[in-house]
Amino acid sequence: MKGFRLAWKKFTRDRLAFTGFVIIFVLLLAALFAPVLAPYPEDTFQIHPADRLQPPSAEHLLGTDSMGRDILSRLLFGTRVTLVIAVIAVGVSLLIGVPLGLVAGYFENLFSEGIMRVADIFLSIPQVILAIFLAQSFRPSIRSVILALSITYWPWFTRIVYAETRALKKRAFLEATEAVGAGSLRTIVLHVLPNVSSSIIVRSSIGMGFTILTAATLGFLGVGAQPPTPEWGVTIAESRQFLPDAWWYATFPGLAIFIVVMGFNMLGDGLRDILDPRIRRGFD
């Protein structure tokens, strides 16, 4: 408990990390209360062609889109889409990637070799290319995006956990625990996992941001969420043909992506400093 309080204190002192935390907290609130917060909650599906492409005004703070819908309202509802995609995709990747990485790293047999070979195959092609390909194959939808991102993201966890575990194994204390007679599973869970957890957290933090970016990219390229889903990437893609006149149409969804991803990155960055025990013994 004392450790936690210490961490929290350190956390609130770390301005970047705390800002990140606040951003994500606000994001969660926005997602939860979107129907209350949005000035025109019905604009997720309701269209008003007569109000097409209105610049920001008191009535529409961030302007309207090509269908006369309030952009602010759609951005707020977009937070739900974004969160659902990112949380599930990263969660699934973690669940697949981390155990595989631990096993592959800890044991040195054909099976672990096999795992890393498969992971290598997935990593031998840029993630976005494979994700576009998969999302298109499943037929573009939010579910396809989640599937595509999960399938392509787990090897990153595997590789990092694997590398860390192998490095750890070289150090004496693991051999010592084994010599004492601790079982493999016990050693993995009690000794290896805590030691690689900081890397997992850093990867997850980057992963959340990265996943949101990739999902938006898929939406932008037309192989992700479909209209009228208020997904941010889709909105930016729709806006392009109305540039430069309807600048607000492209600008605000991009800012939303930026702020949210920034939040996750800052949080992850801060957590890394706090959670990594080695840092406390660092130079400062």
Partner: peptide, 19 residues
């Protein structure tokens, strides 16, 4: 979107799938 909005008012749901 226009057809979707119209049909919604007579109680028909429409999925939009871009290809």
């Amino acid at each position: 979107l226009i057809l979707q909005a119209g049909l919604r008012q007579i109680g028909i749901d429409v999925n939009i799938i871009r290809e």
